[in-house]
């Protein structure tokens, strides 16, 4: 039975679904990383994803224009980011608590809008799979890497981009500075509040794209609580990745591959109880968190701490 799992077609299948499943996590956690590096923990990712997923779905349903749907979903994310930043930066609210508030707000609002504006779920036509010329016909790697929808490619492109912005640009330096020693940054004339606003809004915009990647690329449908916990996993992945883009990507891929693996284990009829198979990714995440807790060194020092200017 178990040798079925090592058949080439199955391995390609696992890797391809793993990469696809990783997409929403990548957008959400790369974004969240920016916010956290600047010192703001945004636990509301899930709520932002839900609202944006609905917006993308609704726009695609009404106009069939996927680019517009994606843009408006990103905008909805940005607005939620503005709200988050206002609560966490300007009002200096306890970030864990206000994040839960944003989550519940997003959960409730997306459901309400869905009920009022749509009612019965209908499938839409989302982003199609895009076979990259030449590359997609490569043996083995072709179907894994180069036969996905466009949002998958963008998600992976975001990783080196995020690394570059964070480590090689002035903005990245400022973001890290306000997350490590806001007092020092402030004394050098950097506006801590402004940098944090930017970081939080970028994070929420990406959470918005993550939501859209679900409703108009992956499932092509919206339903109440569509994300079912993905946003929280994205937050966990940032810790797992130690606030470094490539390690966050590794975490997202690992989590998704294990999820894809458990589905294949069941589909192939390998005699592992579905409960055990289903638990695998979560057990892995919890173990990952325990490991992450050991490498506290890399955590942005000012994370979750509102900045009070010493007079």
């Amino acid at each position: 039975m178990l040798e079925q799992l090592f058949a080439p077609a199955v391995i390609i299948g696992i890797l391809a679904s793993g990469i696809q499943l990783a997409t929403p996590y990548l957008y959400a956690s790369i974004g969240e990383m920016f916010s956290q590096v600047s010192g703001v923990l945004n636990l509301g990712v899930e709520g932002v994803m839900l609202i944006a997923a609905f917006v993308a779905y609704y726009v695609a349903l009404k106009t069939s224009n996927l680019i517009l749907a994606l843009a408006l979903a990103a905008l909805a994310g940005a607005l939620m980011g503005l709200l988050t930043a206002f609560l966490s930066v300007t009002l200096k609210a306890e970030q864990g608590i206000s994040g839960i508030g944003i989550y519940l707000f997003g959960l409730g609002l997306s459901d309400l809008l869905f009920l009022v504006l749509v009612g019965t779920p209908t499938a839409i036509r989302g982003f199609p799979e895009l076979d990259l010329p030449v590359l997609s016909s490569m043996p083995v790697l072709g179907p894994i890497l180069f036969s996905q929808n466009i949002l998958v490619y963008f998600a992976f492109a975001c990783v080196p981009l995020a690394w570059f912005v964070l480590n090689k640009t002035t903005l990245g330096l400022k973001v890290r500075a306000v997350g490590q020693t806001p007092e020092a940054a402030d004394s050098l004339g950097i506006s801590v509040a402004r940098v944090r606003y930017i970081a939080v809004i970028v994070a929420a915009t990406m959470a918005g794209i993550a939501g859209a990647s679900l409703s108009i690329a992956m499932f092509n449908i919206f339903q109440q609580n569509l994300t079912s916990g993905m946003g929280f996993i994205a937050v966990a992945l940032v810790y797992f990745g130690g606030w470094r883009p490539f390690r966050v990507m590794l975490g997202a891929l690992l989590f998704s591959m294990v999820n894809a693996l458990q589905l294949w284990i069941q589909t192939l009829g390998i005699g592992l109880p579905s409960d055990i198979a289903g638990m695998l990714p979560y057990i892995l995440t919890i173990i990952a968190l325990i490991f992450a807790a050991r490498q506290i060194v890399t955590q942005p020092t000012a994370l979750t701490k509102p900045f009070e200017r010493g007079e």
Partner: peptide
């Protein structure tokens, strides 16, 4: 919904 979709895909 995500997992169920992926299950269908698998």
């Amino acid at each position: 919904v995500a997992l169920m979709s992926q299950a269908a895909q698998t």
